[in-house]
């Protein structure tokens, strides 16, 4: 179990560091996160996984 935890932690840290590096690179290249909603490919994905929209779908599913 301990070895698996070590591997998991290494993978998670590598993924997070890579993600932060990509975000930092995009930021310093002059990119704007808000511009993603104007992207025809990214907009549907962002709307699908938007937390507010997901909560609304859950509430509608369970009838809250």
């Amino acid at each position: 179990m301990k070895k698996v935890w070590k591997v998991i932690w290494i993978i998670v840290i590598v993924l997070c560091v890579a993600g932060v590096a990509c975000g930092a690179a995009a930021y310093f290249m002059g990119g704007q996160p808000d511009a993603l909603y104007q992207n025809s490919v990214a907009a549907p994905v962002l709307e699908l996984f938007d937390p507010t929209a997901m909560w609304s779908r859950l509430a509608a599913f369970f009838g809250w």
Binding site: I11, V12, I13, V14, L15, C16, A18, G19, V20, A21, C22, G23, A25, A26, M29, G30, G31, Q32, P33, A35, L36, N39, A42, V45
Partner: peptide, 17 residues
């Protein structure tokens, strides 16, 4: 490229979490 990098960033962090 910038949009792709932002999407990669979000995807990688979400993948780790």
């Amino acid at each position: 490229l910038t949009d792709a990098l932002y999407l990669f960033a979000g995807g990688l962090v979400l993948g780790g979490v």
